[in-house]
Write a protein that binds this DNA or RNA. Structure first.
Lengths: 219, 219
DNA sequence: TCCAACCTTACGGATCCCTGACGGACCGTC
DNA sequence: GACGGTCCGTCAGGGATCCGTAAGGTTGGA
């Protein structure tokens, strides 16, 4: 799960990013419209939290541009309580929800969870691979009915891999899912996490596609 | 997937080429406008990464020349942060995206992936040949519903062959798709890969056109 | 029948990947 | 602030796989 936080006020942004990082996998931060536009075009985010008043322009233009590109990434806009018109315009431009500033961080998390559920990201949300069941909603993994404890990074890898069964996920896609842009990894960290995953879930859980990446197969 | 990197600074070019080679199939490098122009006219690239300031001229002229020839190959231009006018001119001349120098290699990869996706190179991207299904997006191959594991080169060959059903692909085109210009192959490597492909996908998957090359047929 | 083109197999060097070990970073507890 | 625990990135050795080459067999056309 990968989020983009678009917010120019540094302290607020820092708090939000920290909070979300503790709860999800990778969070990127954009302080300007330019940065946000570049980020959105570059990576696949699962959700964008968009502050509307930015130093270099109106966040709505970004939202409109995304929707024009038929980019359906869920967007939550953050507006001040007295900006009712902005809020309406935002929803009309294709936002999935709004949240009033100043907002409570827990409310934000809940709102995000709701959006993602509504977006039907994964209809049944349970992903089955033989005896292995991955439940992104509850961030739980069961093997033969027994719960398996995963660390944060292990979960991030498994989450990304299990999202598209039978599809090869490149090492790069995994790195982007586990780390953001900034956090650079210079070693075989992904390999190591896959190795640790296999130790917990069984050798066959993750198939390696030499030269490209990894894949999880149905059955 | 075949890329052309146009960049005169040797160290940077080397790093970029290495990075991209690890992730895609074939990468060619041109250090001058002349070389780039020749390469672009000679081979079908899937994408061109174009540095604008070259020793023997402006990269934009190459881009314009390509577009004049109605060559729609996706082009990403690389410019320094302070060359805003260049960037705008580039987009107006028909570039598909730009990236600011100095750029992060992973960001470059992501940008390239985004472009290719946006270019609708592969709408739903599934290529069907009877019981054989080739999915370039997920780099997956299914035969009678069963996934088939392919090595990198095998995939490169199959990818090129399946791109145009019922069309004969010359041995030379295959070599260019699998290797670049430089990587020379002096033997029957392509034949060997085709043979290995047939062993995995069935004898009839790939038809040989004696004296010309190979072909994959619908139905 | 003969030749050229193509197919198949085997082999060893090159490449890529796996995994155990280690130490730094962070966290909670005493 | 010291200690124990967990998580995680890095590294290196060894092992598995890949792939170009070559050599011999097979096919197809003249």
């Amino acid at each position: 799960m990968r989020l983009l936080v678009v917010e120019d006020e540094v302290n607020l942004a820092g708090a939000v990013v920290d909070h979300l990082r503790a709860r999800t996998h990778a969070v990127d931060w954009a302080a300007t419209l330019d940065e946000a536009a570049a980020a959105v075009r570059t990576a696949d985010f699962d959700l964008v939290l968009l502050d509307l008043s930015l130093p270099d322009g109106d966040g709505l233009s970004l939202l409109r541009e995304m929707r024009d590109r038929t980019d359906r990434t869920p967007v939550v806009i953050a507006t001040a309580r007295d900006r009712i018109m902005e809020r309406i315009a935002g929803l009309e431009a294709g936002a999935d929800d709004y949240i009033l500033k100043p907002y409570d961080l827990d409310e934000l998390s809940a709102r995000i969870a709701a959006i993602r559920r509504r977006a039907g990201d994964m209809p049944t949300s349970e992903r089955r691979f033989g005896a292995l069941v991955v439940d992104p909603e509850g961030r739980a993994v069961h093997l033969d009915g027994q719960p398996v404890a995963l660390t944060r990074k292990e979960w991030a890898v498994l989450d990304r891999l299990s999202r598209r069964p039978d599809t090869t996920v490149t090492r790069e896609q995994l790195e982007q899912a586990v780390y953001g842009f900034d956090d650079e990894v210079e070693s075989n960290a992904i390999e190591v996490h896959v190795s640790r995953l296999r130790a917990k879930l069984g050798r066959a859980a993750v198939e390696t596609v030499r030269g490209f990446g990894y894949r999880m197969g149905r059955g």
